[in-house]
Write a protein that binds this DNA or RNA. Structure first.
Lengths: 171, 171
DNA sequence: TCGAAGTTTCAATGTTTTCTGAAAGAATAA
DNA sequence: TTATTCTTTCAGAAAACATTGAAACTTCGA
């Protein structure tokens, strides 16, 4: 396979993959493009290579920056901004975990706490099942919270070994 | 908070949460409803409680069954089918990991292998960056594959301890 | 074999999400 | 200040995705 075809394929696949995970196609495609680009690209170049509009490129580049996956680069003597992505996938994964945890898990835990305090007679089957399930989810979430924190702090080696030892630092 | 309100809130939140992860709102809501229902529900009851159509209920229940999160239950003497969800969240999480791995990671690994064999002169910066990045993703994916397999097989305790020791059984 | 009860399918419709492009805004240099 | 280059915004258009509802299908008991 030639490079051009392989690039196109990777961008398409990474985009499709993203949509499965609640990430919009263009955002994932821009990310893919930057991952395989040796040099930082300008907004123009991103627009051209993916055939997308200026607005779309701008919006999704901003989103990628918010997620901490892309950096803006100012080249001395150039007026334009350039964009570049972190290429170490371990770091990328860690950053995504960190952001999703912040945006979702950390939001959910207080809600579960509230829901676990529902009023009612626990001899009522409906009440009991509800509180038990919520409590179960809550315990799971709190454990996930701790485990993910540890993972975010850890270096790559816990993962690559196949043998995993994680000591929860927060307890 | 009263039970009725808490239920409504949980269903809405679980639905919203699902959409962030590429799961459709209704599917997540049905799952939420079954998670907190002491008894199995019929399609009718699901339709009523969530105010959705018969077709929608049917389609999403089937999808939940495909994911292994819901079971069809045949009650002797009843003509209708009933539906019930696994309530142990640890098992639910494991099942989701298992399915997503099968549907996505296992698909992606052969593609990455192909892409990593792109033709071209590795002294060409574009070729080098491409192959390096793909190779990096590939290694990561293959490790994730092994780690997730171990996790799928493991019991709850590796997770709840905060101390994690996973011995990769597949190597 | 028929009718009743229940389930599945899918074309049409509705909803949500994403994208475009033009206009407004900023930054810079002359 | 003004022209130039680049970036941001956002209303409307387009595309993607989810839902409805009615018809077709299935199952079962009599």
């Amino acid at each position: 396979m030639q490079l051009a075809e392989a690039k196109a394929r990777f961008i398409a696949d990474w985009g499709r993959f993203g949509t499965n995970w609640g990430i919009n196609r263009t955002m994932a495609q821009i990310h893919a493009l930057l991952l395989i680009s040796p040099d930082a690209l300008s907004a123009e170049e991103v627009m051209e290579q993916l055939s997308i509009s200026r607005g779309n490129a701008n919006m999704n580049l901003r989103e990628l920056i918010d997620w901490g996956l892309v950096q803006k680069l100012l080249v001395p003597g150039e007026r334009k901004e350039f964009f570049t992505a972190e290429k170490d996938i371990w770091k990328v994964a860690r950053q995504i975990v960190k952001e999703r945890k912040k945006r979702e898990l950390d939001q959910m835990i207080p809600v579960l706490k509230e829901l676990s305090e529902v009023e009612g007679d626990r001899r009522d089957k409906a009440v009991k099942t509800f509180t038990d399930t919520i409590q179960n989810i809550r315990k799971f979430s709190e454990q996930a919270d701790r485990t993910l924190d540890t993972m975010i702090k850890a270096d790559e080696h816990w993962f690559v070994g196949g043998l995993v030892k994680l000591f929860g630092g927060s307890r």
